[in-house]
Simulated scan of single mutants.
Amino acid sequence: MSSSEHVFPGEHVPAKHHNLRLGPGLLQQASHIDSSESNVVASKAGVLQHSANRSKWWVDSNSRRYVPAPQESVVGVVTQRLGEGYRVDIGEAHQASLDALAFEGATKRNKPNLKVGSLVYARVSLAHKDMEPELECFDAQSRKSEGFGELKGGFVVRCSLKMCRNLLDSKHFLLPLLGGKFPLESAIGMNGRVWISAKEPRQIIAIARCIEAADPDGGGLDADGVRALLETLEV
């Protein structure tokens, strides 16, 4: 099966690797014949994709409903403080939990003081259909923040999950095109939320308009279309 073949819910996927990681749209199930083996099946319809070394597999489909998967980056909003941690809205059916110690250099005496309404850029550390997701704001291997943590200022744009995947692709035209016009910062969540920041409010508005216009669920503009839109926005 090639990485561009369509799959449907319940269909078996030939995903095998010694360090196998499954992304959105795939589930691992125990084999009915041999309990020591497991099968990978699709949980939603879409295009089957895998990384170059075939260690990571996922189903690419355009949706606005986010289903968390381990190691995915998300933009969340703190909704509640709970003892030694927080509850965070990541746009999923259940709130996610974020431990106050899951930050670079955090200790019981020195930890972040997030408030309700604070934005965070985090990584999904645990995702299971029968449990609430768990988040962390550092790289699990290096224990460094690697860009994760509280997001201050800026603005959050909501878009389709497909658009988020496009923006995470280094070959996609939009962010390099915008970055050539003016300095900007971004944090792209796989949960349909993109945090953006720039020096001037009109630039932030322009970035948001361009993301929405290039979204396959929106105008689906290409690079030339976005350039023409930028001219009308006078940035």
Score class of each variant (00 low, 15 high):
residue 3 S to K: 10
residue 11 E to L: 00
residue 17 H to R: 05
residue 19 N to M: 05
residue 20 L to Q: 06
residue 24 P to I: 08
residue 30 A to D: 14
residue 42 A to Y: 02
residue 44 K to V: 09
residue 57 W to K: 05
residue 57 W to F: 08
residue 59 V to G: 05
residue 61 S to Q: 09
residue 69 A to L: 05
residue 80 Q to K: 15
residue 84 E to S: 14
residue 91 G to C: 12
residue 95 Q to V: 02
residue 100 A to P: 03
residue 101 L to W: 03
residue 109 R to M: 06
residue 113 N to V: 07
residue 116 V to P: 11
residue 117 G to I: 04
residue 119 L to Y: 07
residue 119 L to P: 03
residue 119 L to V: 11
residue 120 V to E: 00
residue 120 V to D: 00
residue 121 Y to F: 15
residue 133 P to Q: 07
residue 142 S to L: 08
residue 148 F to G: 04
residue 151 L to K: 01
residue 152 K to E: 15
residue 154 G to A: 11
residue 160 S to H: 04
residue 163 M to T: 09
residue 164 C to R: 00
residue 167 L to Q: 10
residue 169 D to C: 11
residue 169 D to H: 08
residue 169 D to I: 12
residue 175 L to A: 04
residue 175 L to S: 04
residue 182 F to I: 04
residue 184 L to Y: 01
residue 184 L to V: 06
residue 187 A to K: 10
residue 198 A to P: 07
residue 198 A to H: 01
residue 206 A to M: 03
residue 211 I to F: 02
residue 218 G to V: 09
residue 220 G to K: 04
residue 220 G to Q: 08
residue 221 L to P: 05
residue 223 A to N: 09
residue 224 D to Y: 03
residue 227 R to S: 09
residue 228 A to P: 01
residue 229 L to K: 08
residue 231 E to K: 14
residue 232 T to H: 05
